[in-house]
């Protein structure tokens, strides 16, 4: 399986996402922001960082990158896409996911090891977890406060599209403690904390992040076996 990792100018955790994909057993393929060719990858990770400096709204410029046009098309066709931190912001700006990430309520950048409770496990990126499982993953962002209108929040909850919530403390003021969400099809997932930093005992607080990457491998194996779109059922 080949997982593409996009590098925008200002991407920072791209190497770490590629390392996590390798540790999970995939081949990591580096994708360049200016190149619309996805090089036949089976899934894509949009990594953390400050794409184009993020001096405008975070992710607002990255969504227009040539590579994003291809990714947006492919995601609508079922390609598994995981947006981490800045990648989540890009996915929201690209309207592949609803809502927006705004400045942390306390106005500080915050880096800490954060407990999450996994909820939706029927997505391409979370099927290796069990509902209600608590996992420990680093969070590090300045603009990670998830906001959406009440109707959107209600429908995200009603449709089971919250993939994880912050527990034992909300690090950024996100509404309803939301840490990550998925699209209706379950192939596109955005998450603010960084699973790629919890894949090795030597450097991470846990190995809990690995589940996101092994999930997509399983989703891809399943889809190639039964000919379905990766990422689970259409609703």
């Amino acid at each position: 399986m080949r997982i593409g990792v996009v590098t925008f100018p200002g991407s920072l955790d791209d190497g770490d996402a590629a390392r996590a994909a390798r540790i999970a057993g995939a081949e990591a393929v580096r994708l360049w922001h200016g190149d619309p060719d996805l090089h036949g990858v089976d899934a894509v990770v949009l990594p953390g960082g400050f794409s184009y400096g993020d001096y405008l709204r975070c992710g607002a410029i990255a969504r227009f990158a040539p590579v994003m046009e291809s990714i947006i098309d492919a995601a609508r066709g079922g390609l598994p896409v995981l947006g981490i931190c800045n990648g989540f912001q890009v996915l929201c700006e690209a309207h592949l996911l609803p809502g927006a990430l705004t400045r942390n309520q306390h106005l500080h950048f915050r880096n800490r090891d954060q407990w999450l409770k996994v909820e939706a496990t029927n997505t391409a990126w979370t099927n290796q977890f069990t509902p209600g499982q608590e996992i420990l993953i680093p969070v590090k962002n300045g603009e990670g406060c998830f906001v959406a209108d009440q109707k959107t929040l209600d429908s995200l909850e009603a449709e089971g599209r919250v993939i994880a919530r912050y527990v034992r403390g909300n690090p950024n003021g996100s509404q309803r403690d939301i840490a990550g969400i998925t699209n209706e099809a379950g192939n596109v997932v955005g998450i603010m904390p960084h699973p790629e930093h919890a894949v090795e005992a030597l450097t991470g607080p846990s190995l809990d992040g690995l589940g996101f990457f092994t999930s997509v491998l399983r989703a891809l194996a399943g889809s190639s076996a039964d000919g379905q779109l990766a990422g689970g059922q259409q609703r």
């Binding site: 920072l12 955790d13 190497g15 770490d16 390392r19 953390g48 500080h108 950048f109 915050r110 880096n111 800490r112 680093p138 590090k140 960084h194 790629e196 930093h197 090795e200 450097t203 991470g204």
Partner: peptide
């Protein structure tokens, strides 16, 4: 120190 990223680069 929570205002500093200590994880980036993964090493």
């Amino acid at each position: 120190t929570e205002q500093y990223d200590r994880y980036v680069l993964g090493n």
